[in-house]
Design a protein around this nucleic acid. Sequence first.
DNA 1: TCACAGAGATAAATCGTTTTATCATCAGCG
DNA 2: CGCTGATGATAAAACGATTTATCTCTGTGA
Lengths: 339, 339
Amino acid sequence: MKTTIKDIAQATGLSPATVSLVLNNRPSRISDATRERVLAAAAELGYRSNSAAVSLRTGRSYSLGLIVPDIRNDYYATYAKGMEDACQEMGWSLILCSTNGNPERERQYIETLQAKSIDGIAVVTTPPLTGTQSFEANRDLILRMQIPLVQMDLTGYREPINAVVCDHEKGGYMATRHLISLGHQKIAFITGPSSLEGSSSRLKGCMRAFHDYGLPWDDKMLYEGDYTYAAGLDGIDYLSDRDFTAVFAFNDLMAYGVYNGLAKYSLSVPEDVSVVGYDDHFLSSIISVPLTTIRQPIYEMGKEAARILIYKTEHPDTKPVITWFDLKLIVRKSTRKIC
Amino acid sequence: MKTTIKDIAQATGLSPATVSLVLNNRPSRISDATRERVLAAAAELGYRSNSAAVSLRTGRSYSLGLIVPDIRNDYYATYAKGMEDACQEMGWSLILCSTNGNPERERQYIETLQAKSIDGIAVVTTPPLTGTQSFEANRDLILRMQIPLVQMDLTGYREPINAVVCDHEKGGYMATRHLISLGHQKIAFITGPSSLEGSSSRLKGCMRAFHDYGLPWDDKMLYEGDYTYAAGLDGIDYLSDRDFTAVFAFNDLMAYGVYNGLAKYSLSVPEDVSVVGYDDHFLSSIISVPLTTIRQPIYEMGKEAARILIYKTEHPDTKPVITWFDLKLIVRKSTRKIC
DNA sequence: TCACAGAGATAAATCGTTTTATCATCAGCG
DNA sequence: CGCTGATGATAAAACGATTTATCTCTGTGA
């Protein structure tokens, strides 16, 4: 039988109220002697509070929800791990919600989370699938529920909102500048969905780099992918009749697709084509031709997301927090100088 | 303000008891008219039950816990996704516990989960780190708490226990036989920790294949890894002065290490050395030399694990369930015939 | 001696459900 | 008319913690 607060009260001859006060370290006038007595009994009986009871009474659950499209994707898994570690440090729990990019399922999850008195929700926005509405509606749902929300990137939402963010325009700029500085002038771009802020920012950065270095921009060198491996392959097929010496893929997974797409046309990396990715997936340093890429500190961003949410539950009426993270160009073997 | 069962009672002029009975579809004598009235009001007011209250009253939470060493590892992430999908189908939730292979942290998690009245726990055993105790103690803890537990593989536990299992001896046999049938006789093995059942079974299978085909077994061709990428690299370093034409790595991650380890010695796959992996990691079909491997249906096993746990909460006093899954040899480009 | 001010501890209400024993009503029947 | 048995619905007690107003001391100073 699990020990309750009553058992401790009984064991010490005190009241449940006193026990609760001590166990929660509430400001109150409990003598040190009593305090000791309670703590001793609690340890003795191996007491652990029943979180259902606590939740019911306080309306809080000391748990956060994480909504991601697919936990198998290293990008989201890393974010999850960051949040999880931060939660663990504070004695909180993380509820995992993997939506397969389905907004309807996303909505169901949000309602389940609310029913669980979840204290905060972190969302990594789903690239909108064809024929489905975007995350907008679900975001409003969360906000109406008054549940603290933290987003990855700003995703075009213009109201102030909690978020962990990288300056993707700068990221796009850095990647492009790197290629230009190696002598590349004919660069192909495999982007993400233009509806995602992170993707359109990157693209802006690319264009700015072209402008700064006086290169002519050409929309024909663009292929809009959806951040999947397959999109990388398809992109190369699409671009196969164009003339380019470098490819910038907007994430590493698509860059892997590019690798294999190029192989199909007997082009090798970096001899024939230089490739830059984005994210620094854990495999990028491992694969046969290690990938030059822009590193996002996803793990740290996950940690920060959890911290923001936990902070928000303690200080509900504070202004939205936006934490910026630095991107870093990691030069490996997939890019090389040309004449 | 959230709608409660009382609000519905008020709105319909009925009692909370009636409302609860209807909403939970309890066997009772409620007239169809009343039933309709309750359902209508519930829909109208957008009622969702408060799970803290339900948990407190019933001692159940409709959530499962998943304990894995590292969610970033595709193997565990796939398992997680399987469980998550099964949970979602039934309206349950999944609480993620990533332990970094630390048994102490594992223990903390188990206690947190109990405090949350978790209905079941799935564990993928942590390879014991040096200087730490194994999962044994924590398993006993869970069992003492009377929480349904389902394991991945049997891990040497001889009492009957819920588990999802592959016949790894057969897996080891299949991989080895494949290499032998291609003409390989000098085969190196990079195993997992011998304390893990899955690993020692594979090894048994390898030895049986050698025996069946009349080949001499040599313990010197063995390197005990720990299922990490680095162990693959180290294994090749360790084996570098041996004479072999093929390597069987006990998981794909180590096989990737083997790839790069071999490259260091200017050996190429499959021309100089054939490589077989185990698991069928999602990258194995993607990498430049696609990996021949033994596929475990991890996703399905995760689904089944969740199903077993949910079943167990409904039928507590049934015998332990062990579900077996088939392994499959996936032949790709990393193995070739030799003379 | 009495009023009073802390200090220390507690009684009791409350959170939202579930569940069992009980209650009211009414039809049917001898 | 009074009794029995369904039938339909409810009252009320949990579950385990939190929290606020309240209670009882004790010692102090007038």
